[in-house]
């Protein structure tokens, strides 16, 4: 009763208050999600003395400001950044392309029992990679070199004299192996992303194309592929961040210092110089830069990729 008889103005006031409360909570959320990043950014511009003496999230004072940490971090990480790009870009493109092809063959062309294959492949998304690490190391460092050595020295023995060995310690080869590994493990998630997209494409349109005389390949090339371009953007963005951010596979597959990727170099930086937080924070920001840029420019696509994982 009392609420109804109250001045309508106070009701509006009440709504205003709850709106203000809502925005206060949302702003607190911003602080919560940003403070570790903000702290890192502030710290990377501080001198050793300054970051010990000041509050971490405060900006550096005039005499406590330095670019030295950033320079050190950049010089340490730069080769890693380049290696990461060399490794991640082809892996991402391959995964996306394979994912699109797989999803096409398992969705747009429909046949009995295909869902079984879909489950089989999609389960691969959820595998803890520890379960494949030892065989992976064995495959790239034992089985494949042995096989290739045997093959090359048998077939081309006249030229190699039986002395050819697979250059196991070649840095670029290790990067290539890492790239192929990522491409293979990226297929399941890319397939899932493309499959949910292809399910939304009208069956009648595909039937129309079949009646128009298009072959399965021609339908893919002329219809599915052009229509998938937005989905390629989503998949490439999402998968690139996943591959770039990974540390585990790199730890196992790349041991030549010259071919270490950015995450490996950052991990080494963090573990090594314990007290130079300005340098390690600068390292974190530099290592995060490619994915941060991608995220800022293509946030929408990244969010779609994230949501597609369910």
């Amino acid at each position: 009763m009392s609420t109804e008889s109250r001045n309508p103005l106070s009701k509006i006031q009440e709504m205003e208050n709850s709106r203000i409360g809502l925005y206060a909570v949302l702003l607190f959320g911003l602080v919560f999600y940003l403070f570790p990043v903000e702290t890192a950014v502030m710290t990377m511009f501080k001198t050793q003395q300054s970051f010990i003496e000041t509050v971490p999230f405060a900006p550096p004072s005039a005499d406590g400001f330095t670019l030295e940490a950033l320079t050190t971090a950049w010089n340490t990480l730069r080769p890693g950044l380049i290696n990461s790009m060399i490794m991640a870009i082809p892996a991402t493109i391959l995964s996306a392309l394979f994912g699109s092809l797989t999803a096409y063959g398992l969705t747009t062309i429909s046949w009995r029992g295909q869902v079984g294959v879909v489950v089989f492949i999609i389960a691969g998304i959820f595998i803890p990679y520890q379960a494949v690490l030892v065989p992976l190391a064995q495959f790239w460092y034992q089985i494949l070199p042995d096989l290739l050595n045997g093959f090359v020295n048998t077939v081309f023995g006249f030229a190699t004299g039986g002395n050819w060995t697979y250059p196991i310690r070649n840095g670029y080869l290790q990067l290539f192996q890492l790239s192929v590994t990522h491409a293979a493990y990226g297929i399941p998630i890319c397939t899932l992303l493309f499959r949910s997209y292809y399910q939304s494409i009208s069956d009648e349109m595909i039937e129309a194309a079949r009646l128009d005389g298009a072959t399965a390949f021609s339908i893919y090339k002329n219809i599915i592929l052009p229509l998938s371009l937005p989905m390629f953007a989503v998949t490439l963005i999402y998968q690139f961040t996943q591959v770039y951010n990974d540390l585990l596979f790199a730890l196992v597959l790349v041991n030549e210092p010259s071919s270490q990727v950015a995450t490996q170099r950052l991990a080494a930086l963090t573990g090594g110089v314990v007290q130079s937080f300005n340098t390690t924070m600068a390292g974190a920001i530099v290592a995060a830069l490619p994915t941060l840029l991608v995220y800022i420019v293509f946030g929408e696509q990244f969010a779609k990729g994230v949501a597609g994982e369910t």
């Binding site: 009648e204 349109m205 128009d212």
Partner: peptide
């Protein structure tokens, strides 16, 4: 389908 020399108009039009 393609060899039957038939053309079909769909309810949804199915345009590309």
């Amino acid at each position: 389908p393609a060899q039957r020399d038939v053309a079909m108009v769909f309810q949804s039009y199915a345009l590309y």
